[in-house]
Design a protein around this nucleic acid. Structure first.
Length: 688
DNA sequence: AATTGCTAAGTTTTT
DNA sequence: CTTAGCAATT
């Protein structure tokens, strides 16, 4: 039997309630992951078959982490010959759906080698549609259209009524073109993964039954972030058994702008009246001063499940609130503090994190850190996968995997230049629309080819031959053949390396890009892809992994050295740091200006709450009297949220004032500092 | 066909 | 201040 004596009573209740619906309200730092992993282990120890357990998370990182922790808790069962040991399914919503769809999508009229469009590709599709219908009259932003599109596709009819009718009409109009574009390309987007799975379940009850009998115990992590269709999916899967355990925190719902429905959590009883609700309120992360401040801030929100976090860690230090003159002074202050903490208190850089609302706020901080010689890493921000060379390369792979992938084909058709001009491609694109076919299919058609002059036609045929030959080479490669050499030869054949060197004047940057690419190529044969599959399918698996897990690759950070973390308030959810600095607590930034128009002040407050509750031991907040905005220094005002902090928990200072050191403390502090400087030697001294 | 130069815009972003 | 997109130029 699994030992649950290390858990507190609420955790234990959550872990041991296996049958029927369970709602675990897990406050920040209350051991949520511990509960989920123990619950899985508990079920296994009670004889539930591992194959019957499904746990769904939102991020791959969370899924991986849980996988590891479950493995530690439950010694892997020995595999009997011929029958490999089954393991619980632990994955994201999207990867779960990919798995289901790879098996069944042919029933919906797609081919199993479908492509997953990422946001950049979606934007491309929408842009082409907008260009076609509006002829450049009004300027609607593709990303905004895309956001509305996602909303109308995921929302129920009554929810759609809230959307502004003009926007709705436009989005509806775009929707037709968008969906047929994706269909022709045998491509799906992130929303489709969920929506098509739902459609599959509705149109093919046998597929649903199949999944239901497989997944009899379901857990959903970060439940407050589920959207309408994800809820629907969960509800279908939980079916008759109602063995559904959802874990979440309404106070940490910060993805409403992206379609997440906090109501899924708030109204859980409506759909599962017999639910058992468990509140986890004992916090294992922070001091009580931090928790009291966070509790107080969030109590200003309406419509909460309500909970009070507390911990056994004592009061701890007061929260510091620093007023700065401008953003550069703020950055300098934070960096000085980081250095002081390191040299005087012996706090590693790796135990300190700077949190901000918007990515661009990291710039002055980065500059100050670099100047002071402090190592840092930025989480999120511009992704590895956003880089030009990576996108080009992936487009090549995607086209070779699925030639009907229009977005990727158009991207690489003339990169490097091979005589297929924009005008030529434009005509092919039009032809493909007329024929309701993919661009690739249009290219192959002799009628289309004959539109062009000899020269363009030859270039087109060369390109087609390249695609077909290369694809054929992969198809006929022996089982077990590695992908990397093939991929590298593709890039050589098309002259991509020279192209990179040619377009980038700075040879260092060019080399850097080439190195990036080679790294990615090497990762194609990662051990987690199934080597026994045919190469083409293996390529497909690699591609969906990359589409669904963008953090991978840039993610060996855990073992990285001693580095300060720079991170947005959004992406810090789920993380914790001993010492946290939250910068830019100004009106218009947090809460963000846009939240006023959209009436989402509550969500901004939750975002602040999430940021506050990341801190374990010390918390430093700062704001500026002025901030550079598009190069101009403009005045700013303290965030209204700061008034919601209980005054008695806060020390208010200005960045210019240096706190005097108490008489008795001085000696030992400085002795400690000297010692550490002597032995650390690599750490730059605090600047003056 | 590719390069240069101008204009306009500029939250958050797990998948 | 940046960056991306588009137009005009060679």
């Amino acid at each position: 039997m699994l030992d649950v004596s290390g858990l507190n009573p609420q955790q234990r209740e959550a872990v041991t309630t296996v049958q029927g619906p369970v709602l675990i309200l897990a406050g920040a730092g209350t051991g949520k992951t511990r509960v989920i992993t123990h619950r899985m282990a508990w079920m296994l120890s009670k004889g539930v078959s591992p194959g019957h357990i499904l746990a769904v998370t939102f991020t791959n990182k969370a899924a991986r982490e849980m996988q590891e922790r479950v493995n530690k808790l439950v010694p892997r069962r020995r595999s009997t010959p011929g029958e490999p040991a089954e393991r619980p399914t632990l994955c994201t919503f999207h990867s779960l759906c990919v798995r289901i769809l790879r098996r069944h999508i042919d029933k919906l009229g797609y081919k199993p080698n479908f492509t997953i469009y990422d946001e950049a590709e979606q934007v491309g599709v929408v842009r082409r549609i907008l260009a076609k219908i509006s002829q450049g009259t009004d300027k609607v932003k593709p990303r905004e259209v895309l956001a509305v599109l996602s909303r109308i596709r995921n929302a129920s009819p009554e929810e759609r009524l809230v959307i502004d009718p003009t926007t709705l009409a436009l989005a509806r109009h775009v929707q037709r073109g968008y969906e047929s574009s994706l269909r022709a390309a045998n491509a799906v987007d992130f929303d489709d993964l969920i929506l098509l799975t739902l459609r599959l379940f509705k149109e093919h009850p046998d597929a649903l039954e199949d999944c239901r009998s497989r997944h009899r115990y379901i857990m959903v992590d970060e439940y407050q972030d589920t959207n309408g269709s994800q809820f629907e999916l969960v509800r279908l899967l939980a079916g008759a058994t109602h063995n559904l355990c959802v874990v979440g925190d309404d106070d940490q719902s910060i993805y409403g702008w992206r379609g997440a429905k906090i109501a899924n959590l708030l109204d859980f009883e409506k759909y599962f009246p017999e639910v058992k609700v468990v509140r986890l309120e004992q916090n294992y992360r922070s001091t009580n001063n931090i928790l009291r401040a966070a509790n107080h801030v969030i109590s200003n929100n309406p419509r909460r499940r309500g909970k009070q976090l507390w911990s056994e860690h004592g009061d701890g230090e007061k929260i510091r609130l620093i007023a700065c003159e401008h953003d550069d002074a703020e950055a300098q202050f934070v960096v000085d503090e980081i250095q002081v903490a390191k040299t005087i208190r012996g706090i590693r850089w790796g135990d300190q994190a700077v949190l901000f609302r918007t990515n661009q706020q990291s710039r002055p901080i980065e500059a100050a850190l670099r100047k002071a010689g402090v190592r840092y890493r930025i989480i999120g921000g511009q992704s590895f996968f956003d880089r030009l060379e990576i996108r080009d390369f992936l487009a090549y792979l995607k086209v070779l995997h699925n030639p009907h992938d229009d977005a990727s084909l158009l991207r690489i058709a003339n990169v490097p230049a091979r005589g297929l001009s924009d005008a030529t491609l434009e005509r092919i694109l039009t032809a493909s629309h007329e024929r309701k076919s993919s661009v690739f299919a249009a290219m192959r058609h002799t009628d289309v080819q004959e539109q062009f002059q000899e020269r363009a036609r030859l270039c087109l045929k060369d390109f087609l031959r390249f695609l077909e030959d290369t694809r054929h080479r992969l198809e006929t490669s022996p089982i077990g053949q590695l992908l990397a050499p093939w991929a590298e030869s593709v890039m050589t054949t098309v002259g991509y390396w020279d192209h990179l060197r040619g377009t980038e004047k700075n040879p260092e940057i060019a080399d850097n890009r080439i190195r990036n690419l080679k790294e990615l190529i090497a990762a194609l044969d990662a051990p987690e892809v199934n080597r026994s599959l045919p190469a083409l399918e293996r390529l497909g698996e690699s591609l969906s992994d990359m589409a669904l897990d963008t953090s991978r690759g840039a993610d060996d950070e855990d073992k990285a050295g001693d580095e300060v973390t720079l991170i947005t308030a959004h992406s810090c959810k789920g993380l914790e740091f001993p010492h946290v600095y939250i910068v830019g607590l100004e009106e218009g930034l947090l809460p963000h200006t846009r939240s006023k128009d959209e009436g989402t002040l509550d969500e901004e407050r939750r975002l602040f709450y999430v940021a506050l509750t990341r801190a374990m031991r010390t918390l430093t907040l700062s704001y500026c009297a002025a901030r550079k905005k598009y190069g101009q220094l403009t005045p700013s005002h303290p965030s209204s949220f700061l008034r919601e902090l209980p005054m008695e928990l806060v020390d208010h200072e200005t960045s210019a004032a240096r706190k005097p050191v108490a008489a008795g403390q001085g000696k030992s502090l400085f002795a400690g500092m000297r010692d550490r400087v002597a032995q650390a030697n690599g750490g730059a001294p605090a600047s003056t």
